[in-house]
Write a protein that binds this DNA or RNA. Structure first.
Lengths: 137, 137
DNA sequence: ATAAAGTCTATAAAAAAGATAGGGTTTATA
DNA sequence: TATAAACCCTATCTTTTTTATAGACTTTAT
């Protein structure tokens, strides 16, 4: 399951996507709309900004705005950023690889082999579903 | 990512699958093979047994054994048992449904709609990969 | 100047995961 | 029939992760 961080990020991105004609959107408005903590959301938006999905304007009259086309924001990117690996095991993660301690030999481990296949197929899904898909429904 | 519980369960099932000619296998042997806690594994094997994947024999000379054909044990079943939902959000879980508090109206929520699609496609993968796939590699 | 709004870092609280403990029950076998 | 081996069951403790909060700082419009 996705963490609340990722879930909130998706809601925030959706909100920003729906308000693209406005110059900026306040954290406060997004938080209120979904009944989530302003301060918690603040950290999340900051991460999305650092990852290049959002822009911001400081000071009075400031706020956040999308700086990417929604179809350029795949779910895989949001999930990886806030939740970490998409792979089911560390030993098959492309972005967060770590060996599995209980596995004697990765090269001959059947679990490893199958999880690589699962990862590749899962990635196909999550790289193809984008913010645009969320916005257009 | 899978929890250690699920990971250990997969290792145990694999071990049992590889020792099907033997009548029973000791918890101890599985735990030692993978360097994991005997007592922790004990609880996991018990759950797998209650779920109908394993049989056991008590008393001296006892142990565990597979009571299903490996191709009848899909990853989805193991994951759901030890880790819970496969869906990315509670509001789209088939087996563990719960509404999302930050979502005003599920019926019109784009995130919900997309996550249903992701769930269905993920399920196709995890229902089709079975213990047999792990054993045969 | 002032107030509004994002930036940043640290810490606290809550929940979940991982691990351990120990007594109970069953069964083969000497 | 006593004993040791092995699974059964439940409770509790520890650690890690997640979620949430706090507060000081910086920037900017008016």
């Amino acid at each position: 399951m996705l963490s609340k961080k990722t879930k909130y990020a998706l809601h925030a991105l959706t909100y920003l996507g729906k308000h693209r004609e406005e110059k900026t959107v306040l954290i406060h408005d997004i938080a209120e709309e979904h009944g989530i903590s302003h301060k918690f959301l603040e950290n999340i938006l900051l991460e999305l900004k650092k990852a290049g999905m959002l822009g911001s304007k400081k000071g009075k009259g400031g706020g956040y705005y999308l700086i990417k086309d929604p179809k350029e924001i795949p779910l895989s990117k949001v999930i990886r950023l806030l939740d970490g690996p998409i792979a089911l095991l560390p030993c098959v993660s492309l972005n967060y690889y770590e060996p599995c301690s209980e596995c004697k030999d990765e090269a001959t481990c059947g679990i490893n082999k199958v999880m690589i296949q699962v990862r590749d197929e899962t990635l196909k899904i999550l790289e193809n579903k984008t913010l645009e898909d969320i916005l257009k429904t």
